[in-house]
Amino acid sequence: MYTYEQKCMMNLSDAYTMLYGFIVQSVLDRFGEEGERWVREGTRRFGRDRALTSRELHLAAGAKINMQNLFGLYHDLPSDPRFRRKKQELNPQERVSHTLICPMAEVWKEYGHMAIGRIYCEEFHNSCYSSYAFGYTQVNLAKTLTQEGDDHCAFNVVLRPENLPEDLRPVCFEEYDPEYVEPDLPPRPVDGKAGFNTLSIKLYYYLLEAVSEGLGEAGAHAIEEGLEELARKTADRLKACAEEDNLTIDRRYVEDNHPLRVEIDAEPMWEKYSKHEAKQRMEQHFYKVFHRELSLVCDR
């Protein structure tokens, strides 16, 4: 039995997962392998952005850039209550872990997006973990729940000090920094809504950016079509979830259970991620459909 807050977390996560699935599906449907090229590129850019954001945060806190901190310090998302894993090793050089249940893989499977999930697994993790440690992380994800035949994900992510240039060793490992005093690193609360909101905007933005660069306006149109389908499917899912819990779909429910803010103008991130008419396309092709499906009244 999950609490309301846990269910919100699960819905936020599922909507984020669906965003990738439906946008990518639309691009692949229209452009095939050429579309896949730019989807992979967009996924890598998203991974880099997410990694650099974590790295900046860690450096500002005086923490070392290593595997223990990548996977243990200041997560940008709370844990999904459905997620199950077995940690085998977490130290500054290594993070070895098996993911036993991945809610993202479950959602992709449910909507027939397993091959799309594979693209995400191949490109995102590699790009993100590698970029975090200046390109020196060795990322091994030899088993994935998005790979037919695999029954868990096997992460083996390593950063060896002997593979780093001299100037980066003290940045990454305290034993190479003789004057290092470990700072107090007070825990930071992790806000699921804010986390999924940020990641959803970035993920959408980088897909749009890469696809627009590679395929022009026709590519952007494919993304718009993906947004419309996403809006319909996400609305259906939210309605079903609310009905299951005897809750009414209102603005408050949507605010709690969907990553994006109900009012697009209330979102300051669009200023930074504004190119390629990202906000306008999102408003036209996602918000309008989503709100109509949920019978929500916009402030505008």
Binding site: V39, R40, Q88, E122, N140, A142, K143
Partner: peptide, 27 residues
Amino acid sequence: AQVNLSALLTCDRDNHCRFSVYYRRAN
């Protein structure tokens, strides 16, 4: 190509090696 080696017999945790290599046309 992307090489993944998540388990290896030279690591005392593991009892086998697991390799997954992907070389995607789209890249």
